[in-house]
Design a protein around this nucleic acid. Structure first.
Length: 508
DNA sequence: CCCTATGATTGTTC
DNA sequence: GAACAATCATAGGG
């Protein structure tokens, strides 16, 4: 077979074959049948023996030429093709038309999603396969390409690993988006380069095989369908390489991603100064703790962090701040209910109340202390700059008179509280009111100022001037903060937000 | 070593 | 797409 193949491929001068097939096809009908049989037998004999013989070039050329020029040759060729097609090919054809490999599709999807195979390239992968198919036809000796590409893929992996090692050597904490993008771009570039090479090799090989087959089709029965089938086979073979390349790339992306995300996930505390700045902003904008983009940028700049970190911080802060308050509220509600029940049923007011008081205060203190501290700070700073009036104005950044996002003041809600609230107030008042060291250490007037001017839209009608009272010597100080507001039954610290045009998310 | 605080991520809701 | 809510994972304090 090898000899035959070599010989066929060396036949360069038989290019006019196909054109002659049809005209000569009917000629055989003029021949006497026995003579025809004889001739066909001769031809077959020649075909059978030709591959067994080791011929020198001159001999081969001569014999082939003779054979090719025989007037029966086209007819015989057609018949053989037909037979071949009807037997072998029909069976194999039934196995074709399989759906695209789901695994490959997944890889493609991932590469597109990760931006490694861009839209133009992503379509390219399937389009490339089609192009490959269109160009093609061949013998499965792609083993060479296979090993070649394995080597290249190994090279790609090495590049990735080198890059990743560089990562680890450099300070992992310094990994930023730009780094990730850069690495991804590298991967993309390598991938696209390799993919280009792959495509080229695939096309070249397919073209080569198709040419070979076409060449051979002059001397042996090779139907177009068979060539197509070969193309399919080649494509499948190459698909393995393609798959490997894509898998490799996906792997690299995944590793990069995980390293990058891991690195980012590693929590690093902000500097104390940054936290101070953020807290200052937060508590001085308690009514509407949603910094604008500009504010975020400025904070980010001042704190030496990114804008998204600022956003994260505020998101976390809002939630946790609210959580503290909500927790206190919930306890208060339960507390109130218990109290009412105790009153009604003459139940024993036990240590339970004492514990509740303590825990309730604890939750409240946490939020309050912080709020107070930053309120005082801001006020002091503002006062230093603008004077007392200006300082007060400084709190009211979110548009105080409009309903506040975080309404920390009981205000009217307190007045409209139901029985359970009254019961709660009663118990609370019996507890001796709110007092804590932290409150003493904080300018009470500042606290009140903050609470009334910033948090509450309206001054509390019953509490008199906030500046005249200290939280710890007033029973109402228990509910002076935000924390009693939930007792009105709605339990919504954010209430009023729905009325507020300025608030971004009227909810909860 | 346990616990809390907190920055970051992920999933859900609007 | 922004904000919320839940969760993860670590820092840091006791």
């Amino acid at each position: 077979m090898e000899d035959g193949q070599r010989m066929y491929s060396q036949q360069g001068g038989l290019t006019n074959m196909s054109g002659n097939v049809l005209p000569q096809y009917n000629m055989g009908q003029d021949e006497p049948s026995d003579q025809r049989k004889q001739e066909i037998g001769d031809i077959l004999q020649q075909i059978m023996t030709i591959t067994d013989q080791s011929l020198d070039e001159a001999q081969a050329r001569c014999r082939k030429h003779t054979l090719n020029c025989h007037r029966m040759k086209p007819a015989l060729f057609s018949v053989l093709c037909e037979i071949k097609e009807k037997t072998v090919l029909s069976i194999r054809n039934s196995q074709e038309e399989e759906p695209p490999d789901p695994q490959l599709m997944r890889l493609d999807n991932m590469l597109i999603a990760e931006g490694v195979a861009g839209p133009e390239k992503g379509g390219g992968s399937s389009a490339a396969a089609n192009a490959t198919a269109a160009a093609s036809g061949g013998q499965p000796d792609s083993a060479i390409e296979h090993s070649d590409y394995r080597a290249k893929l190994a090279q790609i992996r090495q590049i990735y690993h080198t890059e990743l090692e560089k990562y680890e050597q450099s300070d992992g904490s310094e990994i930023k988006n730009s780094d990730y993008e850069a690495k991804l771009a590298q991967i993309r570039q390598v991938y696209q380069t390799e993919y280009g090479k792959y495509e080229q090799a695939c096309n070249e090989f397919t073209t080569h095989v198709v040419n070979l087959l076409r060449e051979q089709s002059r001397t042996r029965p090779i139907a177009p369908k068979e060539i197509e089938r070969m193309v399919t086979i080649i494509r499948k073979k190459f698909a393995a390489i393609e798959m490997q390349l894509k898998q490799s790339t996906c792997e690299a992306v995944m590793i990069l991603r995980s390293r990058f995300l891991d690195a980012r996930r590693k929590r690093r505390n902000f500097s104390k100064q940054a936290t101070e700045l953020l807290n200052e902003y937060f508590y001085s904008h308690l009514s509407n703790p949603y910094p604008s983009e500009e504010a975020k940028e400025e904070l980010a700049r001042k704190c030496g962090i990114t804008v998204s970190q600022v956003s994260n911080w505020f998101g976390n802060k809002r939630i946790r701040y609210k959580k503290n308050i909500t927790k206190a509220q919930e306890e208060a509600n339960v507390y109130a209910a218990k109290s009412a029940a105790a009153h009604e049923g003459q139940g024993t007011v036990s240590n339970w109340f004492g514990n509740k008081r303590i825990r309730y205060k604890k939750n409240i203190n946490k939020a309050q202390e912080e709020a107070n501290m930053y309120a005082a700070k801001t006020a002091a700073a503002a006062a230093a700059n603008v004077g007392p009036e200006g300082g007060a104005a400084g709190y009211n950044v979110g548009g105080g008179q409009a309903g506040m996002y975080m309404n920390l003041n009981g205000g009217d809600n307190y007045q409209s509280s139901d029985n359970s609230v009254n019961a709660l107030r009663h118990v609370i008042s019996q507890s001796g009111g709110y007092s804590s060291d932290s409150m003493h250490s904080t300018p009470a007037s500042m606290y009140e100022q903050h609470m009334n001017q910033q948090i509450t839209p309206h001054p509390r009608s019953q509490n008199g001037s906030p500046h005249d009272q200290k939280p710890d010597d007033s029973t109402d100080s228990w509910c002076a903060g935000a924390f009693m507001q939930g007792l009105d039954g709605e339990g919504d610290n954010y209430d009023g937000s729905s009325d507020e045009p300025g608030l971004k998310r009227p909810k909860i």
